[in-house]
Amino acid sequence: MALWKNGAFVDDAWREIAEGEDPPPAGHVILPLDWWEQERDAFEGSNAPLGLRVAPGVPIERFARDINRFALIELVFPKFGDGRAFSMARLLRERHGFRGELRATGDVLIDQIQMMARCGFDTFQISDATTERLLRERGAPAYKRFYQPGATPEAPVDSRPWARRPG
């Protein structure tokens, strides 16, 4: 497991909470959504930084009111072909105004990283060995022309409202 952020591997300040474990009061832990829903009262008044882990298929409405309580939201790609978290990321950023760290985890492969970033993810937990090796060797693919507006810094190209390039 290695955490990819802004074109480099970085140390991970966060820790996933294991089943049944008590969260340390200092925070920097990622809580599963079910856990959070049961224990949210215990965090009343606490400022400890918290993360939330959300499985694909969970409607964002279920935790929308708590979004600003979280410094990090982690969305799961159980298989690279399960693309639900792409839409969830866009909704979190564009509709619900989430500004914290949006983390991709699960089957995160090299060729999806730029797409994930363009949907609003900013950190990527890499468990695939080939992806990790390729990222170390050559970094993530960085295509420079898009036919849709994305969440990374981008500039319009011409009169087409949908075309973009990095900028």
Binding site: D82, F86, S87, C119, Y147, Q148
Partner: peptide, 13 residues
Amino acid sequence: RQWSSIHPEFTFL
């Protein structure tokens, strides 16, 4: 066609 080409959100439907 253009808008759907390598759409970052809709490539893994």
